[in-house]
Design a protein around this nucleic acid. Structure first.
Length: 276
DNA sequence: CCCTGCCTGCTG
DNA sequence: CAGCAGGCAGGG
């Protein structure tokens, strides 16, 4: 579910509530949610740790403590909440970190695809998903030339390349569609065949689109909690995702829905012409 | 490169 | 009831 803008929202809400707090105890209800190390070691190492801050990289979040880094990925249905200890326990709550101020960090995930990893503060990153991440969308290296180099010779659809976390970190299925719509590029265009002009447009709209949705997704901690850490996405602002079969907001043609690279995709056959 | 597995809940 | 969902890892 959550893509970069949503993960940024989670960080924005959770970080101020947990920074400076000390973890008193950790409960894991479903051990497989802890990818590494073993559940016992995970809990033991975090006991008594003071939280110093939170970071986002791509769709990964990391909670920093004095001696550890806790990295997590929400995948499709994960959510991270800060609640009072007596707050109603949601179904599928898999990890609970009790804090020293009567609050808890809770990880809830119905499909249980989300994962946690614990590393020592100074340990080199061993999480494959993080190691292979490409630049952040807001990084200066994201230029037409960079995309040209990365897409060179690729016959696969440009949309699949946008979803490739090693090319740009943080884009998922929804924003890939929104980005390509703004760029006026057909999602099935062969990545390697795009003109430098199209790549320049793409490099421009990637950070624009994501920062627009980061802005739109802003929410108060109260509303975030009331929505279960899930209901903060500003879907009213999505221009085409979820609007297949409806008129294009730009030209009025009917938006097409189609499976591309195994993912449900929406695009405007009028605004997003296929060059190849 | 493509394919499957991982899970539950919602929609048609 | 089958099919699908905003993601990724691992294997062939």
């Amino acid at each position: 579910m959550p893509e970069l803008p949503e993960v940024e929202t989670v960080k924005g809400v959770v970080n101020p509530q947990i920074t400076g707090r000390t973890i008193l105890s950790v409960t894991v209800n479903h051990p497989q949610v802890i990818a590494a190390p073993e559940m016992e070691e995970f809990c033991r190492k975090l006991n008594g740790q003071q939280i110093t801050g939170m970071q986002r990289r791509g769709k990964f979040l990391t909670i920093l403590t004095e001696n550890c880094r806790v990295t997590l990925h929400l995948r499709m249905t994960g959510s991270l909440l800060v609640t009072p200890v007596d707050y109603k326990m949601a179904k599928h709550t898999h990890v609970i970190m009790r804090l020293d101020n009567g609050m808890e960090i809770r990880f809830i995930d119905s499909r249980r695809f989300g994962r946690f990893w614990l590393l020592d503060a100074d340990e080199e990153d061993t999480i494959t998903g993080i190691r292979k991440l490409g630049p952040e969308p807001f990084d200066d290296v994201l230029t037409a030339r960079y995309l040209q180099e990365k897409f060179a010779g690729k016959k696969k659809a440009v949309k699949e390349c946008l979803l490739d976390q090693s090319i740009i970190a943080g884009i998922g299925n929804i924003y890939a569609d929104e980005i390509l719509f703004r760029a006026g590029i057909h999602p099935q265009s062969q990545a390697g065949s795009l003109s430098l002009e199209e790549l320049a447009k793409l490099a421009e709209v990637v950070p624009q689109t994501l920062s627009y949705y980061i802005e739109k997704n802003q929410i108060s901690p109260e509303d975030y909690l009331a929505g279960g850490g899930w209901d903060y996405r500003n879907t009213p602002y999505l221009r085409i995702y979820g609007h297949g079969g409806e008129p294009c907001p730009a030209c009025g043609m009917i938006l097409e829905k189609k499976v591309i690279g195994g993912r449900g995709s929406v695009f405007c056959p009028g605004c997003q012409k296929r060059g190849n």
